[in-house]
Structures are given as C-alpha cells and as structure tokens.
C-alpha cells in the first residue's frame, strides 16, 4: 500500500519554528509505524531524529503521537492506522529535535515518589514473604515501562507541568500496595500535595494511551482513596 507520513519536524539549527514534512512510499499493512520511520530515516531523509531501542514494546523509548493519540511506534501496524499517518512528539515535554523530547522533568517526577522498596524492619533469614493475594493487589502497576505515553496524554499535565503525572503515580502505586514496603506514608504525603493525585480529573486519556493496558485511572483512584482514608 502507498502510505503518506506527515511528520512534525523541529530542527532549530535549520529553522526556528517547528514544521511538518511529508514522505510518501510503499509499505506493507503488516509493517509497523516504526518500520516506516526507519525506512524514512535510512532511505529518504537521514536527518530525521527519533528515539527507539528494543523495537519490541519493552523499552518504551518510541512513544509518540500517532494520528492524534499516544502510541508506541513499534506496537502499531500501518494497516491499523491507515495510509495517512501523522506523527508528532509527545505533548507537554520540551522538544529537543524532531520527535525527541526532553524527559528530564518526567524522571524527576518519577524519582519524587520514591520508586524503590523502603523497609525499616531487619531482613529475615530467607526472603520477605508475600502471598499470591498480596502480590495480586499491585500486579497491574508492575507492568509500567516508563514510556510517558500516559503522562503526555493527560490534559492536567499539558496545562501544569508540575503535576506529578500518571506514570509516577503508577510507580508509587506499585510500592504503596506492596505488603513488604514500609514507605507508604512518605509516598502518600508526596502524592497528597497540591501537584499530586488531586490534579487528576478522571479523564481516562492515560488508560487509553497505555501500551501495556495498565488500568491507570483505577490505580490513581486507589491512591486517592488511600490518601483520603489516611486523613480520615
């Protein structure tokens, strides 16, 4: 099939303002959008800049806005999005070049929720035991690959870049509801602040955008409830 890629370009050394470039070529419907971008980069325009690494939906580096919605380019087939494909960088981050965005603030927010196991009790002789039921409580949020598709699909984040964002809340959820962890109070304090979970407006864009099908809005709801019950 003949495909037309319309791609957001920002090359500050060439042109001050962002613009769109169009590329037409033949592709298979079973090719991924990332294959199309690679084709452009390797055969048509070597100046196109994008991030990708594993190309198998694991590393999360090729999240971008495809035909208006955030997706991983390596998980979307050209046949599923049609012959006209518009590619833009994630919304809300500063664009460094073309499709590459500055994710420093994103990882700063991630670190703010203490995304690691915090324990006060001395380690037992064997491992810290956990029942399958206790593991099940946070199973969904262990799947996050930090691609930022959720955070940059969130209108609350678009209008306020200090908002901690869905991805960081998902990471916090993973530890808050882990029966072995003892840092819940600290995390709930961070997330209960002005730019924490209460900025969430129940819009569901994060859940729709997540390439790992994490029920993000539900996880945020559970954290909201934990904060509310803690204060009660």
């Amino acid at each position: 099939m003949r495909v037309k890629f319309k791609i957001y370009r920002y090359q500050p050394e060439v042109r001050e303002e962002p613009y769109f470039d169009t590329f037409e070529f033949d592709a298979e419907p079973t090719d991924r959008v990332l294959d199309g971008l690679n084709h452009i980069r390797w055969q048509m325009d070597g100046t196109l800049v994008l991030r990708r690494s594993c190309q198998q939906g694991i590393c999360g580096s090729d999240a971008m806005r495809i035909n208006g919605a955030n997706r991983l380019a390596c998980k979307v087939l050209i046949g599923d999005v049609g012959a006209k494909i518009t590619i833009e960088p994630l919304m809300g981050f500063r664009v460094i070049k073309d499709l590459v965005v500055d994710m420093d603030d994103f990882f700063e927010q991630y670190r703010s929720v203490l995304p690691y196991m915090i324990t006060e009790k001395p380690p037992p002789e064997v491992e810290r035991l956990q029942s399958p039921a206790e593991r099940e409580v946070y199973d969904d949020t262990t799947k996050c690959i930090l691609c930022a598709a959720c955070t940059t699909a969130c209108p609350s984040f678009w209008s306020n870049r200090d908002f901690v964002g869905p991805a960081a809340i998902v990471q916090a959820h993973r530890f808050i509801f882990d029966s072995r962890d003892e840092g819940t109070d600290e995390r709930l304090e961070v997330l209960g602040e002005r730019d924490g979970v209460w900025r969430c407006r129940t819009i569901f864009n994060c859940t729709e955008a997540c390439p790992r099908d994490i029920k993000i809005t539900r996880a945020i709801g559970e954290v909201k409830k934990a904060i509310a019950l803690k204060g009660a």
Partner: peptide, 17 residues
C-alpha cells in the same frame, strides 16, 4: 512543547476525553 489549542482539540482520546 507541541501543546496548543490545535493539539488539545486534535488529541484523540476516548469517550472520557
């Protein structure tokens, strides 16, 4: 930052959006 009225309205979210 690729955020503007056009991109806000043009974002293809679900029914929630």
């Amino acid at each position: 930052t690729n955020v503007g009225l056009r991109s806000w309205i043009g974002y293809r979210g679900g029914s929630g959006y």
